[in-house]
Design a protein around this nucleic acid. Structure first.
Length: 671
RNA sequence: UGGCCUAUGGUGUAACUGGCAACACGUCGGUUUUUGGUACCGAAGAGUCUAGGUUCGAGCCCUAGUGGGCCAACCA
């Protein structure tokens, strides 16, 4: 806990500082405040990981609080899904709360604010109010109802609460400053009239509080010490503090702690989108089968796809926390699942694209049950038996009639190992009328100790069971589909994001149950989908194995067109680069090392041409190290008989006038 | 015409009160291997957005600029 002091992120620094400044450790309290209007996605996992992670780190409570102030969009279904997802991720909340629990307390404070002249009822149309509000670059103006009397405000607000008005007729606004540079401070709305059934308070209320008012005060009521949210709420902080300080003056005895809001950049993942609204569109337009479609970046989608809580938590941890916009490479997510599944997933054999192999010297009705290790990464995983027979399937990709020496797999005349079984040698092929290979005839050898380059996975044809395999590709073809100004994210949808394959798997998989995870050897990680029924196995491909062979294949073509100008640096170019590097830090080095580096530069300078040196004369004044290096090179060149020219003289002169003693010293040696 | 945030290898994050820019992913080599996986070893790749300033010394502090983001819902 304390040994990784080095790697604190900026939020942890803030907390450490607060602790150092006297905040008691047992006052630390966090919260995760989702609005129950959609499913959680991988982006939320960052927020969850931050607040719950802090809770774990400091042994502080973390509340799960549903921010349920808008009955128009919120549903119990989402509450349930959110709880399920957080639990699945392995986090434990201290208390389950709802902003709606605080409606009465909030209302009472609002009344106090009216009495203090800090809130008023406005009765205009939303258009009129928007007009008065101004724009980010233009100040707003006061509306006609801004100076109603306290009595009038109290009466109207009470009638709003009692249901005497229709939706939209009146609102309650905080009275702050219509000319404020922060638009959120221009008399923000606190309550609107909404005759809607609420999933928790039913029909008790017909006014509902707005986010800024509710959220901050919910933090305050729960005595949250650090309220962490994403960057877009930064401008809200000013209002958060305004409300908080106002209410603090009413309730400081009951609630002594004033929460502190801090903001971090939210997580973006390459090749996907993270907006709930846009994800909802994918669901509604049936681009995907639902919120838990394995292609979705939702927690439920990832879960169905076979991602593990461990992998997701590690991913968020590795992605880090800061305040700049970011797009994290999906490759990192994939790395994290592989890392986890590699240790835990039992290995099995499955063939996705079958090619029939007949082992001609193996007896026709013989069957052997061979022993296979379940997971060499996990000794406790044990062994199982797999059946071997005369006719097997291998992967089409694993056979070529002839191939280069780089191809380690089966080819005519070549030998290859069958995983957990024998070594076979390809003798001949059978082709159909179009010339496609339909069978490969091989002979086997019982000498399994032989060294062969390749090992193939396989399944025995008579014992294989059929299974449906769903192979997924990214949902979007663009790295950042919702970041284009004139293009809708829907334009980037990848039409081939789902491939359904009829595969053959080893018989041990017959009893596999939904959720079970496996490594299909040499292919990737797969899990059993919940569409699986008694006679019909369905697998999702979670992620492929790393495949350095696949990376090699496209190479021959690329090489032809792009000889890829290798910077085959000649001696000189290399020397100048090295000198540049050495020069960069020259002034910061301890003296002893400086002398060494100086000698090194002088030696390397012999291989530098004047043409390479001259551009360095223009080095920024600030980069003293580089200028010293240039001076050193120059001294060598002058010794070698280089003639002085105006550029050289000017450079030396400028160096002599510099404030840096080292530079002046070196330059004066040239005179 | 404004306000706020932000800028470090391809990507993401570090660098405690200024002191030889580090880690992870990715990339490229190599060793081991009954998975072209894993593990292990190694390499390339950043003059820290620009220009000034302060300092013996700046990624870090100051000033100005530039690029990117956010802010005008009775959403959260």
């Amino acid at each position: 806990m304390s040994e990784d002091k080095k790697a604190l992120n900026f939020l942890e620094h803030i907390i450490e500082e607060d602790l150092a400044n006297g905040l008691a450790k047992d006052k630390l309290r966090f919260r995760f405040p989702p609005e129950p209007n959609g499913y959680l996605h991988i982006g939320h996992t960052k927020a969850i990981g931050i607040s719950f992670g802090l809770g774990e780190r400091y042994n502080a409570p973390v509340n799960l609080r549903f921010d349920d102030t808008n009955p128009a969009k919120e549903e119990q279904e989402y509450v349930d899904a959110i709880k399920r997802d957080i639990e699945w991720l392995g986090y434990h909340w201290a208390e389950e709360r709802y902003s709606s629990d605080y409606f009465q307390e909030l209302y009472d404070w609002a009344v106090l604010m009216i009495k203090d002249g800090k809130a008023y009822v406005d009765s205009q149309s939303s258009e009129a109010m928007a007009e008065q509000k101004g724009t980010p670059t233009q100040p707003g103006v006061d509306g006609p109802f801004r100076n109603r009397t306290v009595e009038e405000n109290l009466e109207l607000f009470s009638k709003m609460k009692n249901g005497d008005f229709k939706d939209g007729e009146h609102i309650l606004r905080a009275k702050i400053d219509m000319q404020h540079t922060n638009m959120l401070m221009r008399d923000p709305i606190m309550y609107r009239v909404l005759h809607k059934h609420h999933h928790r308070t039913a029909n008790d209320w017909c006014i509902y509080p707005m986010y800024d008012w509710t959220h901050g005060e919910s933090d305050y009521i729960e005595q949250i010490s650090h309220s962490l949210c994403s960057l877009e709420f930064k401008p809200h902080r000013e209002l958060y503090d305004w409300f908080k300080e106002t209410v603090y003056s009413y309730a400081k005895d009951k609630y002594p702690m004033q929460p502190k809001q801090r903001e971090f950049a939210r997580l973006n993942l390459s090749y996907t989108i993270m907006s709930k609204r846009k994800l909802l569109k994918l669901v509604e337009e049936q681009i995907v089968t639902g919120w838990d479609d394995p292609r979705m970046p939702t927690i439920s989608g990832l879960r169905r796809r076979g991602y593990t809580p461990n992998a997701i938590r590690n991913f968020v941890e590795k992605a880090g926390v800061a305040k700049r916009d970011n797009v994290i490479d999906v490759a990192l997510l994939e790395f994290c699942v592989r890392e986890d599944l590699n240790k835990t997933a039992p290995r099995v054999m499955a063939v996705l694209d079958p090619l029939k192999v007949v082992i001609t010297n193996y007896p026709e009705d013989k069957v052997e049950w061979l022993e296979a290790e379940n997971n060499q990464e996990d000794e406790s995983a044990g062994f199982r038996k797999v059946p071997f027979s005369r006719e097997i399937y291998i992967e089409k990709e694993d056979f070529k009639e002839e191939a280069s020496s780089k191809f380690f797999r089966l080819q005519i005349g070549g030998e290859v190992r069958l995983k957990n079984a024998y070594i076979i040698k390809a003798e001949s092929v059978v082709k159909d009328a179009e010339g496609n290979i339909t069978e490969v005839h091989c002979t086997y050898s019982e000498d399994t100790e032989k060294r062969v380059k390749g090992t193939l996975h396989w399944v025995s044809i008579p014992h294989a069971i059929k299974a449906e395999v769903r192979e997924y590709d990214r949902l979007f073809n663009d790295e950042a589909p919702d970041s284009h100004e004139n293009k809708d994210f829907m334009e980037f949808i990848n039409p081939d994001s789902l491939q359904i394959i009829e595969a053959f798997v080893e018989p041990s998989l017959k009893e596999a149950k939904a959720g079970d995870q496996f490594q299909f050897q040499r292919l990737g990680y797969f899990n059993v989908d919940n569409d699986t029924t008694n006679g019909h196995l369905v697998f999702n491909k979670t992620v492929g194995l790393r495949d350095s062979w696949a990376k090699q294949k496209p190479k021959p073509q690329q090489q032809k067109q792009a000889p890829k100008q290798t910077n085959h640096p000649q001696q000189g170019a290399k020397a100048i680069n090295t000198i540049n590097k050495l020069g960069k830090k020259y002034t910061n080095l301890p003296e002893e090392k400086q002398l060494k580096v100086r000698a090194e530069i002088l030696e390397l300078a012999k291989d530098v041409s004047y043409e390479e040196l001259e551009p360095l004369f223009g080095t920024a004044v600030k980069k003293v190290g580089t200028r010293i290096a240039a001076t050193l090179i120059l001294s060598v060149k002058l010794d070698e008989g280089l003639e002085r020219n105006p550029a050289i003289n000017e450079f030396i002169e400028k160096a002599l006038e510099d404030d840096n003693e080292l530079l002046v010293q070196e330059a004066s040696l040239l005179n």
